[in-house]
């Protein structure tokens, strides 16, 4: 198969970027999108040019490294990660544009590589259960309803790729934030910190410069893990409760953790 590519090139964060045209030919339809870029890169190097930088690692759709905006859609047309997008998904001879995930909170480091460290900082602000390592209680003394476990798991499978952010017209990271809150808050272990978690993570989310959620639903349409926008509703539920707790706390009735 043959393709015409328009690839975003940008030497570093401070520099201006722009599209560069390339052609690749003789690509096997079974090659993944990233393998097609590899073929192109080997050709660029052989011709004396600078290869295109992009993030990738596991190539199985689970590490969340790859982050290409393909034809304007995060990860491309099939709602899977960039590495799981295959050239057979495109018509032969197609012209395809490739850009980095776009969001003001994700500055471009080079070409298609962006800085997604804000997502780590949102987790830092409460995306965990506060236990340290050591002897813990026997798990079966605290049964978890299988439907709760399933519900937690549906949210916990988030790979932190940031496609939701790149798709959102507001540049919101609420699907990411909501997924972690829904995971931990739907388990009995996560219950004691549920309000602080919701409050802390949303505060950090806003501080990073992400926009608010206004229910466009673009995030769930591109999420490679098919995480439902419902997690944002769950987050809001606990966030509202958290605000009430804080109000009460100011009156001295309940001390927040």
């Amino acid at each position: 198969m043959n393709f015409k590519l328009r690839v975003w090139r940008q030497p570093s964060e401070g520099n201006e970027g722009g599209f560069e045209a390339h052609e690749v030919s003789g690509v096997d339809p079974e090659a993944s999108f990233l393998e097609m870029l590899d073929i192109l890169n080997e050709k660029i190097v052989a011709d004396g040019g600078d290869p295109i930088a992009y993030d990738r690692d596991c190539m199985e759709g689970v590490c969340g490294s790859c982050s290409l905006l393909i034809d304007g859609i995060p990860h491309g047309p099939r709602q899977v990660t960039s590495c799981q997008t295959f050239m057979r998904d495109f018509p032969d001879g197609a012209e395809i544009s490739v850009e980095p995930f776009r969001n003001s909170a994700f500055p471009v480091i080079r070409d298609l590589v962006v800085d997604r460290s804000p997502l780590d900082r949102i987790i830092e602000a409460g995306g965990y259960i506060s236990v340290t390592s050591g002897p813990q209680p026997e798990p079966n003394t605290n049964p978890v309803r299988p439907e709760d476990q399933e519900h937690a798991m549906d949210a916990a499978i988030c790979i932190g790729c940031g496609a939701c952010v790149a798709a959102c017209p507001n540049g919101s990271a609420m699907l990411f934030t909501g997924a972690k809150v829904a995971h931990l808050n739907s388990l009995p272990q996560g219950d004691p910190e549920r309000f602080d978690r919701a409050h802390g993570m949303v505060a950090q989310h806003d501080e990073e410069g992400f926009g608010g959620c206004t229910n466009f639903g673009e995030c769930q349409a591109v999420c490679p893990q098919e995480i439902s926008i419902k997690v944002i509703g769950e987050l809001y539920h606990d966030y509202r409760q958290a605000m009430l707790h804080r109000l009460r706390a100011r009156r001295g009735a309940v001390k927040p953790q």
Binding site: Y128, I129, V131, S133, G134, P135, Q136, P137, E138, P139, N140, P143, V144, R145, P146, Q149, A152, M153, A156, H183, L184, L187, Q189, G190
Partner: peptide
């Protein structure tokens, strides 16, 4: 066995049987 205990305490959602046991 301690690893399972540790992970569950952290909120790792291991699969459960109908009765809620691991």
């Amino acid at each position: 066995t301690g690893i399972i205990d540790q992970a569950v305490a952290q909120g790792v959602p291991f699969n459960r049987e109908y009765g809620g046991m691991l």
